[in-house]
Write a protein that binds this DNA or RNA. Structure first.
Lengths: 237, 237
DNA sequence: ACGGCGCCTTGACTTAGGTCAAGGCCGCGC
DNA sequence: GCGCGGCCTTGACCTAAGTCAAGGCGCCGT
């Protein structure tokens, strides 16, 4: 990790682009920017590790960060992937204690580090900031409810189908989507491993629901995918 | 569900016992109590259902509430069990929209319903309240990280062992613990089903780690349980 | 005391999905 | 161009855990 030179103005600019901080006056933004620190990470470097003492949280400026846990056998479960503008590692800010999971850079990453104290100071003066943060945590909770639901009650094919539809929706319904990460990592996001993911993609292709070429996936039967996402088995119920 | 007669004073009393609201002045407590409504539920009745529009959240007064999701096949995954003093269903308050899961009474239950608007009013005046809520959500998030970790990376025996140790720890390290729910429900809390839970308990007993009789479990080999919780297999690695 | 109903236990069977290992593909540096 | 390393794919195999179904055990009410 590299501590970067950066002006307070540049930092305030980054913060202004972050939905967490909408509604703040320039003055407060400047105050936060004053205590924030810009940091740079290379691929695979960790921002923080599970169990580490937390004195603040991060806001991604550019690149991507994944947050994950590891099993005793080394298997990995990705909990989140955060992009620019998203905060990360905020849990211990409000509850004290340690980071519950590990965060790592996926490719090159720049992030602002916000010390807890500075944030809470501003928060006490401006409840809007706290409400924004509550909204962020609420989204996070929804996300986890979904994840738990998927892991406990759905099979891999359903999770994958949903993920593909999701990617497509985010690309305004495009018929072709591009996997945004390596397949190995996508697998651990979906709570499985690369081999299984590969087989599932192959089966979907045999079924005629998709066509794949490298990281590209063409959705050839949207309804079929939707049925899979809803729980239909790959061999037709 | 029954709408109960209750005095504002009684409601304020219930609220005062709730850690979410510590640090509030009498005046604000009274304000919240003024808009709160006491409700009663019988076993299995739902406080809210997944997808329902949310206009507020609940605080358990007495009894227990479980929050869960259901798979297409009817299988159930319990996300939380809340007891007296704990808030429940707060996610949509800060982010709008619908309840992400369903909440049901486990046995007889009394709960206070707090309309979102009243809560936010007080929150804007008293940021402490929002900070308390942030702490609550943070605990919730930690809990989910743990749950996801367990479901994705641990086996049933590890989850069960951990749960037993947890019960024991909560009873100040007691050697004998009493399962606080039906085994069927414990199973779905642990992300499995009654049959598997039963078999796993039997195996642990054969191993000599525990002894069971009905809802009671004696921990006869704490280290063994700890090893299981840490990932050791039931047949000794 | 007895019948009935929930819940729990157990057995036999099935299956999703993980493990291991052997290639194949592709991009990159030399 | 060639070789090397990462990733992906595929096959053969194994195992944890779910399904289905048949009792057993308690507990509760009449």
């Amino acid at each position: 990790m590299k501590r970067m030179q950066s002006t307070a103005d540049a930092r305030a600019g980054h913060l202004a682009r972050c939905s967490l901080l909408t509604g703040l006056a320039d003055e407060e933004l400047r105050a936060l920017a004053g205590v924030a620190r810009l940091r740079e990470y290379g691929d695979g470097e960790s921002l923080f590790v599970r169990g580490g003492e937390a004195e603040g949280f991060y806001v991604v400026v550019s690149g991507k960060a994944k947050v994950c846990r590891f099993g005793t056998d080394g298997r990995e479960q990705v909990l989140h992937v955060f992009g620019p503008g998203e905060p990360c590692g905020e849990v211990p800010v409000f509850q004290g204690g340690k980071y519950p999971a590990t965060a790592m850079a996926v490719g090159a990453l720049r992030a602002l580090y916000l010390p807890r104290h500075g944030f809470l100071e501003v928060g006490k003066k401006r409840p809007e900031l706290l409400l924004n943060m509550l909204a962020v945590l609420s989204v996070r909770l929804r996300h986890f409810v979904q994840l738990v639901d998927d892991l406990a009650l759905k099979e891999v094919s359903a999770r994958l189908a949903k993920h593909l539809l999701d990617l497509s929706a985010r690309a305004r319904g495009a018929r072709m989507v591009e996997l945004d990460t390596t397949k190995t990592m996508l697998a651990s996001r979906l709570g499985t491993i690369a081999a299984t993911l590969s087989r599932t993609l192959a089966k979907m292709q045999r079924l005629g629901a998709i066509r794949t070429k490298g990281k590209r996936v063409w959705i050839t039967d949207r309804d079929g995918l939707q049925a899979l996402a809803a729980g239909m088995k790959l061999d037709g119920k």
